[in-house]
Amino acid sequence: MGGALEPRDRRGLILPKWLPPALLLLPAALVFGGLFVWPQLGLFATSVASPPPIGFATYQRFLGDSFYVAVLVRTLSLGACVTLVCLICGFPLAFFLARLESRWVPFLIMIVSFPLWVSAVVRSFAWMVLLLRNGLVSIWLRDAGLAPAGFQLMYSFAGIVIALAQVLLPLMVITLYAVIKGIDRDLENAAMNLGASPGRAVCLVTLRLARGGIFAGSLLVFSLSISAFATPSLVGGATAQLMAVAIYEQTLEINDWPFAATISAILLAIALSVALVYGRLIDGRNVPVR
């Protein structure tokens, strides 16, 4: 009979069950292992080798220096702020696109993804035009009485948040779009039929079921914002005292590789633990996303 339990090659040799998936994973695993895991391990080894052979002097230096602790806190709050802005702006937009019955949807998604098409340098110069003291946005804010004279968004934390949120918003929108599109619209209809206003229906049903997408999108935006370098340094200038900027200074300006490796290891560890905690928080009742 042809009902072989294990895959055979053409000569009838029985292949172990794990081999085909392993072969399929091999290219990605090689690239990931060779270009990410291995260097990362090397970096980690560098960070725990002062004084040699094993020592944690660089970690003590980082955590004992209030300047670097402030850099860490600033970086994490930047990540949190950008993620929050992207979620608040991205969910309604993604919901609108997912529920729009129009052949223009692919085109609209392309427009949404536009910021990703422009280089960070060009994008940041555009923000300068808007955010500098005599830029449009700053003038509007002052004219509307929302900001004092001489106010500018350029070279401020808020300016960095705005510029980063702009470029990362497409990732949030596209992630959420795919998830919301997979949620049966009749679930919202059912909620409304049972007496929930449209807004409540979305909160009670769509938002709950989109948890997986909210998690994935937030993680993407958060990790990219805490490791961003070009946009924060261009828009933030001297205020951009962030982890990525600190790593840049330690490697290319001060040439202190063990300390740079330490900063980078701390950043990675924090990003991973944030992902774990956030995942637990959002995944209250493990609902599979359809």
Binding site: L187, N189, M192, L194, A196, A201, R208, V287
Partner: peptide, 20 residues
């Protein structure tokens, strides 16, 4: 009148039960 202010009870073809 919007659906949530109408007094109807709908049984959907796909049932549309809230999965969570």
């Amino acid at each position: 009148v919007p659906p949530h202010r109408r007094d109807t009870g709908m049984v959907f073809q796909s049932y549309a039960l809230f999965p969570h």
